[in-house]
Amino acid sequence: MDPRARPFRSVLYIPGSKERALEKAKTLPVDAIIFDLEDAVAVEEKPAARSLLTETLKAGGYGPRFKIVRVNGLDTEWGRKDVQAMAFAGADAVLLPKVEKTAQLDELSEMLPGMPLWAMMETPRGILNADALAAHPRLEGFVMGTNDLAKELGCRFRPDRLAMMSSLTHCLLAARAHGVVAVDGVYNAFKDEEGLMAECEQGRDLGFDGKTLIHPAQVPTANAAFAPSEEEIDLARRQIAAFEEAEKNGQGVAVVDGRIVENLHIVTARETLAKAAAIAQLEAST
């Protein structure tokens, strides 16, 4: 199945050590959850978090939400045990932090036969190797780790994310070249809804599938930003109808709202309607 066939508008980080948060996540209208065993868990809590998350995932209850587990790096004392625990816990994918080379994905593939792999894109070397990583046969998703990347770049925060733009678009190009999901980084000011919406809209306009989130309050904003609007759905339907009518008359183009509509526009229009249908189906079963 094409990993992009399902919505990834909202991808919420949940600490694997927080039982209350793990339970609450079962009721949130998110498309996907990243159960975090890495940055969100203190060193002394990592073994207990692994056990708690394993039992929680085995118990189920997350419905159609896509379940991603971010393990610790394989070069840490916890990483391999995390991966071994997740092999049969019921996760939909495993997310590896600080991926920089395909050998890391090869190693993880051997440990998790058949499970989809996702990669955190959060270091300069990882960004530069994005094309090779996206081409890996088991890789299905990129998650932009913009906080770590900013630290590595030594760049300053700007609302327009100018310093991040080359990294974001480079990963996005690689993801699209290989049919990989691409999810934008987090917005840290979780009480700033206006700023979040602006960054969601920027990520959407660049072409990202959705946004990673750090707080449940951010979910509705991301869901709205990355879903086709009623106007976009209406336009897509009218474009398809006009183009089909033009074809019946032996013409290769149509005109809708004063703009030329060609076959490439119809491909986009059908993708818009398919995305809207997938979102509706997901929301109906959540």
Score class of each variant (00 low, 15 high):
Y187A: 12
R158H: 12
L133T: 04
A119S: 15
A175E: 02
M144P: 00
Q104G: 01
G203W: 10
L196K: 15
E107N: 05
G210I: 10
W118D: 05
P124V: 07
C171G: 05
V183H: 03
V183M: 07
T212R: 08
V181I: 07
K211S: 08
L173E: 03
N147R: 10
A119G: 14
V180Y: 00
A89I: 04
A132M: 05
P97A: 02
A150E: 01
E100T: 04
G141E: 04
N188M: 14
E110N: 02
M111E: 03
C171L: 10
P124A: 05
E100S: 05
E199C: 10
S166T: 15
P216C: 10
H178T: 06
R138F: 07
A174P: 02
K151M: 14
C155I: 14
L196W: 08
F208Y: 15
Q202N: 05
M115C: 04
A130M: 07
A135K: 06
M111D: 01
F142C: 01
P124Q: 03
N129L: 12
D205S: 13
A150I: 07
A189D: 15
G210K: 09
V143S: 09
K101L: 09
A163Q: 13
R156W: 11
L196A: 07
L108G: 03
A198S: 08
T102L: 07
L108K: 10
V99E: 02
A93Y: 02
P159G: 04
A89E: 00
P116N: 05
T102Q: 04
G126V: 08
G179Q: 03
R176D: 08
E107G: 04
P116C: 08
H178Q: 06
L133A: 00
L128A: 15
R204H: 14
M111Y: 02
R125A: 14
L128F: 15
W118E: 06
G179L: 08
G90Y: 02
P159Y: 08
A93W: 03
A174L: 05
N129E: 15
R161S: 12
F208C: 11
L168Q: 15
D131A: 15
N129C: 12
E201L: 15
V181P: 01
G203M: 13
L172C: 05
M165C: 12
